[in-house]
């Protein structure tokens, strides 16, 4: 299920919809949360004309804080914080400036009382003149970017707190109530792909061997590779030394003075 991939520890989740499903954005995200048993702690901003009031945004932040304090008072063993589903980016941009939207998302991201923030963006609905940059900014803020590419494929970019980034593609089967996903390359397909790659590489090698026109031999055979790997290059040797030593080998004609080796430097 898609919800297993989306409802994780990542905090800011951006869904880029290229299929014009914006009208069901709220339902879509709500269903993902319900599937993972997190349907109770969902908070949303009022949609439509209410978005023109900055107070609506402030109220949402305050509600999150108050809700969290209540949870702490009740000392429930449940996870703290609430899930926030923002209105679609097109609707937000209709009433607020990009700077305000980024600032608000950042506030939510930094808030301890917010568990997850969901933002939906449909490029077909973004009519701001700088829509591309704004979308790129949202992608930068997001830790998980789900891109609904076609009716049957999607991609998921995940940024881990340690800095690791994964980009995986999935095939999907969508019905009105279910969203099933499977990784685009399963084991069988990977093996098949690897075998195909090997065959292709073998063909390439054969083609190269058959071509006598090359002036330089730039490929290495196995022995040469082993010899190359065994060779320690001078800069590697110097970097291995724990402390800096001056190795001086006097010539036969040198009049080397042990007491003053730096005589010629005149320091």
């Amino acid at each position: 299920m898609l919800s297993n991939l989306i409802v994780t520890n990542q905090k800011v989740i951006l869904i880029i919809d290229q299929l014009n499903r914006e009208r069901i954005a709220l339902k879509f995200i709500g269903s993902l949360l319900h599937e993972q048993g997190e349907g109770k702690e969902i908070k949303t901003l009022p949609i439509g004309t209410q978005l023109k009031h900055v107070a609506s945004f402030e109220t949402l932040l305050n509600e999150c804080n108050n809700n969290n304090i209540n949870q702490l008072n009740q000392s429930e063993p449940t996870k703290t914080g609430c899930n926030i589903i923002l209105p679609t980016l097109a609707d937000l941009l209709c009433y607020q400036t990009p700077a305000y939207i980024f600032d608000f998302i950042n506030k939510l991201r930094r808030s301890e009382h917010v568990r997850r923030v969901f933002l939906w963006a449909s490029p077909q609905n973004l009519q701001h003149t700088d829509a591309d940059y704004i979308l790129a900014g949202c992608e930068y803020l997001a830790e998980l970017v789900l891109r609904l590419e076609t009716d049957t494929t999607l991609s998921l970019i995940s940024r881990k707190p340690g800095g690791g980034v994964t980009n995986k593609r999935y095939t999907c089967q969508v019905s009105k109530t279910e969203f099933q996903v499977t990784p685009l390359l399963d084991a069988g397909e990977t093996n098949a792909l690897a075998a195909a790659t090997k065959i292709e590489a073998a063909h390439e090698e054969a083609a190269k061997a058959a071509d006598p026109g090359g002036t330089f031999k730039i490929e290495l055979d196995e022995d040469e590779v082993v010899a190359r790997n065994a060779l320690t290059l001078p800069y590697e040797r110097t970097s291995e030394a724990a402390e800096g030593n001056i190795i001086y080998t006097p010539d036969a004609d040198d009049d080397f003075d042990d007491e003053d080796p730096d005589e010629d430097l005149l320091i």
């Binding site: 339902k27 709500g30 019905s175 009105k176 109530t177 279910e178």
Partner: peptide, 11 residues
């Protein structure tokens, strides 16, 4: 015409 708005897709 949107006949029904499902959770993940519209009819």
């Amino acid at each position: 015409r949107v006949l029904d708005e499902g959770s993940y897709a519209c009819e």
